[in-house]
Structure formats: structure tokens, C-alpha cells
Design a protein around this nucleic acid. Structure first.
Length: 348
DNA sequence: AATTCGGGGGT
DNA sequence: ACCCCAGAATT
């Protein structure tokens, strides 16, 4: 009979995208991919997955990795604590769980970087256990299907969706059910302009029937973004470029950058930048406006005390460091650009 | 419950 | 510009 579960799993069996971590043996590909996929679209995660999997093809090699190597492979993807937690979890699995992922929800949730979603994803996909996943895609599909008006920013709403799915997730193929729901949300039941014509649920979907797909799911507006203004100070001598490593906690933990001077306003930034172009970089909660100047005396830099360490780096060493995106944009504008584009392999 | 964690892509 | 993304950890 045509139930919610049978409709989407049958749809999935036909429309399943081939992905590098799909239909391969063992839990390790699922484990690795789920860290990469947190708040990250499939298309963006794929090249990172291929690079990391090629370098660390199993849990043992990953557990033995240097953190700096993981971070470098992660460079440009964002949310860098995912990479540190991935390594920590791999070490715990290797040493505390005999190299096997713990096939129980309670134990899985103790691993760093694994929360409700990731635990359910790994246990259902790789271990065939009936835990429903509730990510942004699933939330959207179910809220529309039921025409539920609740705010999806509220934690209660996620709980309500999980309870709904817990009762209908098939015990035979819980992983396919979960993947089907997410894939439907990503490719058909999109946030804007959903392709209801291609949707296996369109006959039963209440938001479709009531023409509510533009207003459901409802999401309350986020808090306004903070604006910040920064000037990067670039110093170069015969030994190389002056770079600094950020603190291990907070924004962009332990990432490298040109020493930064924090400013108070866009006006001040435009004044000090001296005609140099103003760049913009947006984070989840910050809009950053910044530029850079060339300095000739590094003793003018009291802000160096804000960093873990500093180093004079030749061009090759510079490109080997985990430099975050805002300053990669600066490097593109310097005469490093030729060497940089040759070494940068993560974009396309 | 709210805030803090990136960066790319769609509209 | 604004929104979203196979969310987790911290406060």
C-alpha cells in the first residue's frame, strides 16, 4: 500500500544519487562522510571526502594522523572543530572500542562531534538500526507534509518530527528511509520553488493540497549579524612573510592569518586602507569588512600578543599552512597569486 | 533555549 | 541582500 515510508523508499531506489560513500563496504565511509556533511552541502563535501579518504582510508590510519594534516585537508571547508573532533573520535574508536564504531546509541553519542543527527545517521545507514534522522531537509519535508505551522528554529519542533518518524521508520531498511527523506528534501522538496511535480508524496502532502509550500516551514528570523572591521598587516623581509596563528578556541581556531588590527568602523577602515579595496567576508553570525596594508616595521604590531605564535614563512611554507578563507582572498591579490593557484587543489 | 561555531550556492 | 545547507558544543 502507498504509505509515507514505501513512497519515499521506492522513489529513492530509482532516484538515488551515486555518492563516493554510498554502496561501499563498512561503516568508515559513512562515519567520515557524516562529519563532512554537517551543515555542508553534498556537492561541497565530495572533493574533501575524496582527498581525506585517499589519505586516510581506514580508522587506523585516521587515528594515527597528525591534527595539522587533517586541518590542512579541511582547509576552506569551515567549521574546523569538526576536523579536530573527527580525529579525537577516531582515536577513541581505535583505542577504546577496538577499532569498531560502537553500535549503540548511548556509546555513539559520547564520541566528540557526534550528536543526535550523526549518531542516528551512522547507526541507521551502516548498522541497520531504526533511528530516524532529523536534519534541515527532513524537517522541511515533514513540516510541509503535515502542514505543521510550528517554528522550525525551536528545539521542540525537531522533537515532534522525530517522534512522528520514529513510528513509521521501517525496521528492514531504516538507512534507506533516512537517506531517502534527506535526498528528497535536497533535490525535490527544496526551500524555494519545490518541484512538487516530481515528488512521490505530492498526492498526500497537505502543504501541497493547501498551497502552503511557500509559507511552510515557518522559521523565525535570526538575530542580526554583527559587523566587524579589520585591517590585515602584511610584512615581508628576506626570510619570508609574517604570519600568525590564532588562539586554539573561538572563531577559526588555530588557523593562520596575517596579523590583524581590529577597527571600530567602516570609516576608519577606509581611512587606514588608503585607497586599497575593501573586501567582505560573511560568517554565520558576522559580516566582516576588511582590507590590508603593507608595513615596513613589525615592531608596530602590538596585536601580535593576541596570537599563539608567529612565524616568518617562505612562499612554499606559507601555502602549506591552514590559512582561512578571508586571508586566502588577500593572498590572491598579492604577487603570491601565481604560486598559490598552482598549489591550491581544493577548489575544483 | 540561545549562541557560537564557515563557507558556498541559490534566488 | 537574504536564505539554506545530511548540526554540535557551549553557555
Amino acid at each position: 500500500m502507498d504509505t509515507f515510508a514505501s513512497l519515499i523508499t521506492e522513489w529513492f531506489s530509482v532516484n538515488k544519487r551515486p555518492l563516493p560513500w554510498r554502496d561501499v563496504a563498512g561503516w568508515y565511509p559513512v562515519f567520515l562522510s557524516e562529519y563532512l556533511l554537517q551543515q555542508t552541502q553534498v556537492r561541497q563535501a565530495i572533493p574533501y571526502y575524496l582527498n581525506i579518504f585517499a589519505r586516510f582510508p581506514d580508522i587506523s590510519t585516521l587515528a594515527a594522523a597528525d591534527e595539522a594534516d587533517i586541518i590542512r585537508l579541511w582547509r576552506g571547508l569551515g567549521y574546523y572543530n569538526r576536523a579536530r573532533n573527527l580525529l579525537k573520535a577516531a582515536q577513541i574508536i581505535e583505542s577504546g572500542f577496538n577499532g569498531q564504531f560502537p553500535p549503540y546509541l548511548k556509546e555513539a553519542l559520547t564520541l566528540p562531534g557526534i550528536g543526535d543527527y550523526t549518531a542516528a545517521a551512522i547507526l541507521s545507514i551502516a548498522f541497520n538500526q531504526p533511528y530516524p534522522v532529523v536534519d534541515g531537509n527532513v524537517l522541511r519535508v515533514v513540516m510541509r507534509f503535515m502542514t505543521w505551522p510550528e517554528d522550525i528554529r525551536q528545539g521542540q519542533t525537531k522533537l515532534k518530527v522525530r517522534r512522528f518518524l520514529q513510528d513509521i521508520i521501517p525496521v528492514e531498511k531504516p538507512g534507506d528511509f533516512n537517506e531517502a527523506l534527506m535526498e528528497l528534501g535536497a533535490t525535490v522538496c527544496k526551500p524555494k520553488n519545490p518541484s512538487c511535480i516530481r515528488c512521490p508524496l505530492s498526492g498526500l502532502c497537505l502543504a501541497k493540497k493547501q498551497d502552503q509550500t511557500t509559507v511552510i516551514p515557518f522559521k523565525s528570523p535570526p538575530p542580526p549579524k554583527q559587523k566587524r572591521f579589520q585591517l590585515a598587516c602584511i610584512y615581508r623581509n628576506s626570510k619570508g612573510w609574517l604570519l600568525a596563528q590564532r588562539p586554539a578556541t573561538g572563531l577559526l581556531p588555530a588557523m593562520w592569518e596575517f596579523p590583524l588590527r581590529e577597527l571600530g568602523s567602516l570609516h576608519e577602515l577606509e581611512h587606514l586602507a588608503g585607497g586599497q579595496r575593501i573586501l567582505k567576508h560573511s560568517y554565520s553570525h558576522i559580516d566582516l569588512y576588511y582590507s590590508y596594508i603593507i608595513i615596513h616595521d613589525p615592531s608596530d604590531l602590538p596585536e601580535l600578543k593576541n596570537y599563539q605564535q608567529t612565524a616568518m614563512l617562505g612562499t612554499e611554507e606559507l601555502l602549506d599552512k591552514a590559512i582561512h578563507k578571508a586571508h586566502l582572498k588577500i593572498i590572491e591579490q598579492l604577487d603570491l597569486i601565481y604560486c598559490f593557484s598552482a598549489a591550491e587543489n581544493t577548489k575544483n
